[in-house]
Design a protein around this nucleic acid. Structure first.
Length: 906
RNA sequence: GGGCACUUAGCUCAGUUGGUAGAGCGUUGCGUUUACAUCGCAAAUGUCGGGGGUUCGAAUCCCUCAGUGCCCACCA
């Protein structure tokens, strides 16, 4: 062999070479000018601080699979890649670096800080996109968008202004989720609730004049310095007469009223609740209703402030301890109970979120949600799996305003300008702000210091990737016209609200179009004990290591193979060894595919060398030269193509992988190749052999195309090896995906081949049952149920003999069982295996007895069914007839097995 | 508290419109036949979570109970 075709497949020698070649030849370059039907996908942009994890692998493999498949089925595909600036994560990263130099961002100032971030972005920000290349993703990298690119910035600004002008963005003083660690507001979606075991402290709030006190329960005694009232339920008889009286806040010497509000639940705690409007959303509402003051007793870093007297400057949790101590000393604690409740934690920082009263910007979501819900309920956008629609609907109908301002520097700065006298407006420049506010030229304006939530740029992703500017002047362009709406969005379900829902809102609102037609919610990858793979849990091996170990194709295949639509995937992770052993599925499969190709080429070479005519291999078998098995594999091949199409159309990607796995391994390798060997060995006709091998290579070529979307590298490599004329600039990924030819699918042939397979398997089972070594060719006699079967089996004598390692002595109808023989029945055909006398027959008797038991059991069930008048009357004719035939067949088999057993007893 | 999903062989999961169950891994036995030991051949293992209902017939449809996972809300 002249080619490099090692015994075992080595992905490391293949994968990176091909990726470079594809890039060099720009084969995935996209033009919006193509006449082909468009097909597009938006790549969910990974964070610039991120590194590749298994979520990305699954997600991008699915996308690449569809991109490659659609590209090969005649579409002009465009996969828009990109990367997200990830406000909080990135800023935190840079601040950590500054900390090493004993600096804070305030020391170097906003401008310099931004420079640092951009420098960092240039150095490390693209790592994850480079890692994704290892996966073989076939996107057009020239179209990569960064959410802080100028066009994206413009769009964010314009959208902000537009919503502001429509009154859909407003500024408000509200209780928001405050992250003390990042010192910024968060949206509701960025808060995770976890169950925490704490204590419920019942404190004594003494009446202003008197020795009696009110019992007030709280889990957060550190917030007492923000108390402005104690609320009781107006219908609570116990406290009715106390309403309007004054009590003293413990340790604070502050006098507050007892008020009546429905919020107080008489059945909970003591029935009295302290009202701290600046530190609890419910208390805030009570405060508003009663027009109460809203003193803030905390600093942005969650230390107590000067309101808290001697506790000023203490961290909230330390303060709690100290305050409790002091309360204890002053006998102000009535009792302490264990208490388990849910506490909100910052999703990114991991620390408990502080409900915090502050001025923030909000988007009024209700007007946007209406249309966004409609397009999903009307199935203009379809969710796969469909059950996510309910989740989506629930969120959309109970939607709350989105807090979009972040007290960060890294991000899109809020385009709002303030005049010295407190007027403000949103505008794209100071000048236009002055105009909007009717201020004289030269009036100094101050821009808002805050930036918007990262997701405020992400929600425009369908538009910004396609160069939409949002300024009303360029509402469309050739890219938008071609590729919007996109066809598929592939994403994890955990960002359905963060991202999917908001993209739908933004695109319907600003463009009047849906952003995508189908949404595929991927599985979540979990470890053996069901935990989500994550860096913080330390249960996620580095995907790069796994790819290096098993190959990208193997990782792609295994991941898809194990990921059913709509269900999470458990993988046997071995973090210590940086290993995921189940990746062997894909690696072994790749090796199998490799070796099948190797087999074909070895044969091609052998036959070529034997050939004196030197004619080429372009000639293949004619229709009349096709053998039964050739026709069978063609039928199976076309069935496979049809099934693949159905699976992919319905987003059953793991079905797709299984269909190909079974077809290539079970049908093509286990059976067709084995039969092919017989066909080659049994023919002396070199022309026939050449045609046969050409036929097989031709078929294998197409099988590789079928497999290409899920295993791009190995299929490209073998496809090139199979034909030396193929040049480097040619690619299997640009070929047409085979189309199923229904006329070639032949059920009769598939059934007959199944009979052949079963007969061979019966023979193998018989000899395995008595441990006959494979070198001994046993003698077989087959007694068939009819002459058609006799004819068929005789035509397959060579196959049966070779595959069953036997010699077929006789085949006819109604042959009787020879002495010293084993027997087996398959669909009323009896197979006898002649033994050389001395073999112990006990095992065989046991086996036959078991078979009799099984048959009798099934016959019993079947008879019961048929004798049931309801069954015969109500079941369909075909089912009743089928049942009758089955019963008849089983009965005949039973007779035969019984008589075979008797012959052994003799 | 509300919602969604899941419960099938030791493990991970298939099971299309209801007709008494399949695959891969693992286990056991045999095997080195010139594609492949990252392989081949064969074998064993299941009252399809419990109970009830609809039906001639339920892993499949309905109800209920139990368990697991996730999402939403979040009473001090």
């Amino acid at each position: 062999m002249t080619r490099e075709f090692s015994k075992a497949y080595d992905p490391n020698k293949v994968e990176s070479r091909w990726y470079e070649t594809w890039q060099k030849n720009k084969i995935y370059k996209v033009s919006e000018k193509s006449d082909k039907k468009p097909y597009s996908i938006l790549m969910p942009p990974p964070n610039i601080t991120g590194i590749l994890h298994f979520g990305h692998i699954l997600n991008n493999t699915i996308q690449d699979l569809y991109i490659r498949w659609k590209r090969m089925t005649g579409f002009n595909v465009c996969w828009f890649p990109g990367i997200d600036h990830a406000g909080i994560a990135t800023q935190t990263r840079i601040e950590q670096e500054l900390k090493k130099e004993n600096l804070t961002r305030y020391d170097i100032g906003r401008e310099q800080f931004m420079e640092r971030v951009w420098q960092w972005k240039e150095l490390y920000g693209g790592i994850i996109l480079k890692q994704m290349r290892l996966l073989g993703v076939s996107c057009d990298w020239d179209r990569t968008l960064f959410t802080m690119d100028e066009t994206a910035c413009n769009a964010v600004r314009e959208v902000f202004i537009r919503l502001f002008d429509e009154g859909l963005i407003y500024k408000g003083k509200r209780i928001i989720n405050w992250s003390p660690l990042s010192q910024t507001a968060l949206s509701d979606e960025e808060v995770e609730f976890r169950e925490v075991k704490e204590h419920l402290y019942t404190l004594k709030y003494y009446f202003e004049n008197g020795t009696d006190y009110l019992k007030v329960a709280t889990v957060r005694p550190e917030t007492i310095f923000g108390d402005v009232a104690v609320a009781v339920n107006p219908n609570d008889e116990r406290f009715k007469k106390l309403i309007g009286q004054k009590v003293i806040v413990p340790l604070a010497d502050k006098i507050i009223p007892v008020i009546a509000d429905d919020y107080a639940d008489p059945t909970f705690g003591t029935g009295c609740v302290k009202i701290t409007p600046a530190h609890d959303p419910n208390d805030f509402e009570v405060g508003k209703r009663h027009n109460l003051e809203m003193p803030n007793s905390m600093n942005p870093d969650a230390t107590l402030n000067e309101l808290s007297g001697e506790f000023n400057g203490l961290d909230r949790f330390k303060a709690r301890k100290m305050i409790l101590q002091k309360l204890e000393e002053n006998e102000l604690i009535e009792k302490i109970d264990d208490y388990t409740h849910n506490v909100g934690f910052s999703q990114r920082g991991g620390e408990p979120v502080e409900p915090y009263l502050s001025d923030q910007w909000f988007v009024d979501m209700k007007p946007l949600a209406e249309e966004a819900l409609k397009v999903v309920l009307e199935e203009k956008i379809k969710f796969y799996p469909n059950h996510w629609v309910k989740t989506y609907q629930h969120w959309m109908t109970n939607i709350r305003d989105w807090c979009i301002s972040r007290q960060l520097w890294w991000g899109h700065r809020i385009p709002v300008y303030y005049s010295p006298d407190g007027q403000f407006t949103a505008a794209d420049s100071e000048d236009s702000a002055r105009k909007k506010l009717n201020l004289p030229e030269g009036t100094p304006l101050k821009q808002d210091e805050d930036v918007v939530d990262t997701w405020f740029s992400s929600w425009l992703w369908p538009l910004t990737t396609m160069h939409w500017l949002g300024d009303g002047k360029s509402e469309t362009n050739p890219v938008l016209e071609k590729f919007l709406p996109t066809d598929l969005m592939v994403t994890a379900p955990d960002i359905i609200f963060f991202w999917v829902a908001r993209m739908i809102m933004a695109t319907t609102k600003f463009k009047g179009q849906i952003p995508f037609k189908d949404v595929y919610f991927t599985s979540l990858i979990r470890d053996g004990s069901g935990r989500k793979l994550s860096k913080s849990l330390g249960n996620s091996p580095d995907p790069i290591e796994i790819i290096n170990k098993y190959g990208s194709d193997a990782v792609r295949f295994t991941t898809i193979y194990l990921s059913p639509l709509g269900q999470d995937v458990k993988m046997d992770v071995d973090v210590k060894a940086q290993d995921i052993p189940s990746m062997e599925i894909g690696r072994n499969f790749a090796n199998k595919i490799w070796n099948a190709g190797r087999f074909l080429l070895m044969n091609k070479d052998n036959i070529f060398h034997d050939d004196t005519t030197e004619s080429n291999f372009k000639q293949t078998l004619t229709q009349s030269e096709l053998s039964f098995t050739d026709k069978w594999i063609l039928s199976k091949y076309n069935t496979t193509i049809r099934n693949i199409g159905n699976s992919l159309d319905n987003y059953k990607v793991n079905d797709y992988s299984k269909i190909l796995f079974d077809f290539i391994w079970r049908d093509f390798c286990d059976w067709y190749v084995e039969v092919m060997k017989v066909q080659i060995n049994n023919s002396a006709n070199i022309e026939y052999k050449k045609k046969l091998i050409s036929f097989a290579i031709d078929l294998y070529d197409k099988i590789l195309i079928l497999q290409h979307p899920i295993m791009p590298f190995i299929t490209e490599e073998i496809w090139h090896l199979l034909d030396e004329d193929r040049t480097e600039s040619q690619s299997i990924s640009l070929l047409n995906y085979p189309v199923s030819d229904e006329n070639i699918i032949n059920i009769t042939i598939e059934e007959n081949f199944a009979l052949l397979q079963s007969i061979v398997e019966e023979i193998r089972a018989l000899r395995a049952g008595v441990n006959i070594p494979p070198k001994i060719a046993v003698e077989i006699i087959i007694s068939c149920k009819d002459s058609i079967t006799v004819e068929f089996i005789k035509s397959q004598t060579e196959m049966i003999q070779t595959l069953g390692k036997c010699s077929l002595k006789e085949c006819d109808i109604n042959l009787s069982k020879p002495n010293n023989s084993l027997s087996s029945i398959y669909r009323e055909n009896e197979i006898f295996m002649i033994l050389d006398s001395s073999i112990d027959l006990d095992k065989e008797r046991l086996r036959l007895n078991k078979e009799i038991e099984r048959l009798e059991r099934n016959i019993g069930g079947s008879e019961k069914k048929i004798s049931n008048p309801g069954f015969v009357a109500k079941a369909g004719d075909d089912i009743v007839n089928y049942e009758k035939e089955k019963l008849q067949s089983m009965k005949e088999s039973l007779l035969k097995v019984k008589s075979n057993l008797e012959s052994l007893v003799k």
